[in-house]
């Protein structure tokens, strides 16, 4: 082993140690941020008007994209599944297959991923920009609580709006699926819907709802954390928006795995 390798080892170790320390410090800060949310969100005065406004913003920002994506996902999924099922002469199972896939997994996941991109980034950029231009400080010095007004309202709004959007996505995706089934098999709408709901259980609906709530909370809290704690300067705003999307998407997949695993125990 040459001398350069032996000297670079401590440097690498030092860099790794610093990164690990930063990671845990950040984890601790996020933990404090979440605790602060629960401490402030459910204590009066409630900013109901602002929560409603933010719910509207979340809905409006994602509505078109979610409608389009939901429909296409349902249509394509049904179309792609047909050849495999037709090999066994089981195309009549298509509605059941589509409903299980959409209601259990695709609707909450697709909605959350789109919302993370549209809403999460927007929250990160908006709060980041407010931090950079001292608007958050201005709220603080004028005797108002910026955390309550900016963070709590946005997190509550995403937690409320994402499950509603996910339910909507589910029905739109089923509509896409129905269109494909009706065109190819000539199945009536009533028969399709009967077959859609037959295999679904109470656990499916509850796990899907819980998943959407968790995803919504994640999108809101990550976006707000990134924006609220963004660095000074325009670079900080960009980083906040980017960090909001990347972190939220990563966490959504982790949560998906965990919730599917937990829901499996109740089936």
């Amino acid at each position: 082993m040459d001398s350069s390798t032996s000297t670079s080892q401590p440097i690498v170790r030092k860099g790794l140690k610093k990164r690990l320390t930063n990671f845990f410090v950040r984890l601790y800060q996020i933990h404090l941020f979440i605790l602060r949310f629960f401490k402030e969100a459910f204590v009066p005065p409630f900013e109901l008007k602002e929560i409603m406004n933010q719910c509207y913003q979340v809905g409006v920002r994602s509505f078109t994209l979610i409608s389009l994506t939901g429909f296409i996902v349902g249509l394509i999924f049904t179309k792609q599944s047909r050849p495999s099922l037709s090999e066994f002469g089981a195309t009549s199972w298509l509605p059941s297959l589509v409903s299980i896939a959409i209601m259990r997994a695709l609707a909450p996941l697709v909605t959350a991923l789109i919302a993370a991109g549209k809403v999460g980034s927007s929250i990160g950029a908006e709060l980041g920009s407010m931090r950079v231009t001292e608007q958050i400080d201005a709220m603080e010095v004028s005797g108002t609580k910026p955390f309550k007004f900016l963070v709590c309202t946005r997190v509550l709004a995403t937690t409320i709006a994402i499950p509603i959007l996910a339910t909507y996505t589910g029905f739109i995706a089923l509509l896409g699926g129905y269109l494909n089934v009706a065109t190819n098999e000539g199945t009536s709408y009533t028969t399709f819907m009967q077959q859609v709901f037959e295999p679904l259980t109470f656990v499916d609906f509850v796990s899907s709802l819980i998943k959407s709530i968790v995803f919504g909370f994640t999108i809101g809290i990550v976006g707000c954390y990134q924006g609220y704690n963004s660095d000074k300067g325009t670079e900080g705003v960009g980083k906040a928006a980017n960090g909001a999307v990347v972190t939220a998407m990563f966490l959504i997949f982790v949560e998906e795995v965990l919730i599917v695993q937990i829901a499996g125990w109740f089936r």
């Binding site: 407010m130 231009t133 001292e134 608007q135 400080d137 201005a138 709220m139 603080e140 010095v141 004028s142 005797g143 609580k145």
Partner: peptide
């Protein structure tokens, strides 16, 4: 502190208006 801040006005360098 919150009550005290109401008695102090702070004019920011870049105005910090809520845009």
């Amino acid at each position: 502190l919150q009550a005290l801040r109401i008695r102090i006005g702070f004019s920011f360098q870049n105005s910090a208006l809520y845009d």
